[in-house]
C-alpha cells in the first residue's frame, strides 16, 4: 500500500480520478445530494502504523489523519480542512464506540490526535466532548470520564440522560441523548470497522444508535430500516459533520463483541462526510476479508446490512451506496 506524507492539494488532485469534484460546502448537509458530484470516501492506510510492535505509532497516526482530512476536503493543509469541520465557539462532540472494550473500540490514540487537530483549528479543550452511550463503555475502552466544564470532557449518556420529548421518523421513536441535543453543536462520528452479528456491520450509521435511549428496539430485520430512520432524526442529521472510521484494527466476524481470532490489522482509517458511502465501502472491505478467510458473505448468512441501501433511498437521502457515485481516494 502506497504511503504518502503531507500531500498538498496539487498532488492530491493529480492522484484523484480525472474530473472528480471537490467536496461540498463548509458546514451543514454534504454535497452528495447533487447528482453531478461524487461523494468522497478516503481510505487511508499505513502499513508501518505500528512499527515493529503492536502499539499504534502516534506520529504516523497523526500523519495518516492529516492526509485523510486533507484529501477529503481538498485543502492545502490539514489545518485548513479542520477549520471546515468546526468553528471556534462551537462545542464539538466526538462520538466514539467503546462497547467492546479495548480490543475493538475507537482507539484512544485516534481520539487524541483528532483532539489535537481540533485544538490546532481553534477549538479549545473545554469545547471538546468525547461521548458514548455509557460511562462504563468509555472506561472499558480506555477513556477516563471527566465532566469539568473548563477541561476536555468525556462522559456517557448516563451522565446527562435523555430528552423527554420523543423524536420520531418512519419506524423509530426515541428520546435523544442530551449530550447530542444540548451540549454539542457539531459531532464527529468515530465508529469502528467491524462485523455485527445482528445488524451485519456496524460503522458510521449504526454508531449513532448510541445517541438514542432505546437502541435494543431497532435491531429487528437486520436493522432495516431502523438504522436509516435513526439517522434521519434532525439533531443527528444536522449536527454530524464528519465520519472517521477507526480501521486500525478491524473485525470481520463475531461482532460487536471483541473476538480477537477474527480481527486483523487493517492499519487504516476511512473518512467521509457521507455515512452511507463510508458504510458501503467498509462493508465491502469486511466482505473481502471474509472471502479471503473462506467465510460466507453476510448476504448468504442472512445478515446483509440492507439498511445502508435504505439510507440512500429517496425517503432518506443520507448519502449514496452507488459505487459509481463514490469516489474512493486512497492515501
Amino acid at each position: 500500500m502506497r504511503q504518502r506524507l503531507e500531500p498538498n492539494r496539487r498532488e492530491f488532485l493529480k492522484k484523484c480520478a480525472a474530473g472528480a469534484m471537490l467536496a461540498g460546502g463548509t458546514h451543514g448537509l454534504p454535497a452528495f445530494f447533487s447528482a453531478r458530484e461524487k461523494t468522497r470516501v478516503v481510505n487511508a492506510h499505513d502499513p508501518l502504523l505500528r512499527g515493529a510492535g503492536s502499539s499504534l505509532d502516534s506520529g504516523r497516526l497523526l500523519k495518516m489523519l492529516d492526509r485523510s482530512v486533507q484529501a477529503l476536503y481538498a485543502t492545502d493543509s490539514p489545518l485548513e480542512a479542520w477549520k471546515k469541520v468546526a468553528r471556534p465557539g462551537e462545542v464539538v462532540g466526538l462520538k466514539v464506540n467503546g462497547l467492546a472494550g479495548r480490543g475493538i473500540s475507537t482507539s484512544v490514540l485516534l481520539v487524541e490526535v483528532v483532539c489535537a487537530r481540533l485544538q490546532d483549528a481553534g477549538i479549545p479543550q473545554k469545547d471538546i466532548v468525547i461521548w458514548d452511550r455509557l460511562n462504563a463503555d468509555l472506561e472499558s475502552a480506555g477513556f477516563r470520564n471527566a465532566t469539568r466544564q473548563d477541561h476536555m470532557r468525556c462522559f456517557g449518556n448516563d451522565t446527562l440522560g435523555y430528552e423527554e420529548d420523543l423524536a420520531t421518523y418512519g419506524s423509530v421513536g426515541s428520546c435523544l441523548a442530551k449530550t447530542l441535543t444540548q451540549v454539542c453543536d457539531a459531532v464527529i462520528n468515530l465508529p469502528v470497522l467491524k462485523d455485527h452479528g445482528i445488524a451485519g456491520v456496524t460503522m458510521a450509521l449504526k454508531n449513532l444508535f448510541g445517541a438514542i435511549h432505546n437502541p435494543n428496539k431497532y435491531h429487528l430485520n437486520v436493522g432495516d430500516p431502523y438504522v436509516a430512520d435513526v439517522n434521519m432524526l434532525p439533531p443527528i442529521r444536522q449536527k454530524v459533520r464528519l465520519h472517521i472510521c477507526d480501521a486500525t484494527t478491524a473485525q470481520y466476524e463475531g461482532g460487536p463483541s471483541y473476538m480477537p481470532q477474527w480481527t486483523w490489522r487493517y492499519n487504516g482509517l476511512l473518512m467521509s462526510r457521507d455515512p452511507v458511502a463510508l458504510d458501503y465501502t467498509g462493508w465491502q472491505i469486511l466482505e473481502q476479508e471474509r472471502a479471503e478467510k473462506g467465510m460466507k458473505s453476510l448476504r448468504a448468512l442472512g445478515r446483509a446490512p440492507d439498511y445502508i441501501a435504505t439510507a440512500a433511498d429517496p425517503n432518506h437521502r443520507l448519502g449514496t451506496n452507488d459505487p459509481s457515485q463514490i469516489e474512493q481516494v486512497e492515501v
Partner: peptide, 12 residues
C-alpha cells in the same frame, strides 16, 4: 416525508 413528532415522557 419527514415525520417528526413530540410526545413527552411522563406527560399526559
Amino acid at each position: 416525508m419527514s415525520k417528526t413528532a413530540h410526545t413527552r415522557k411522563g406527560e399526559a
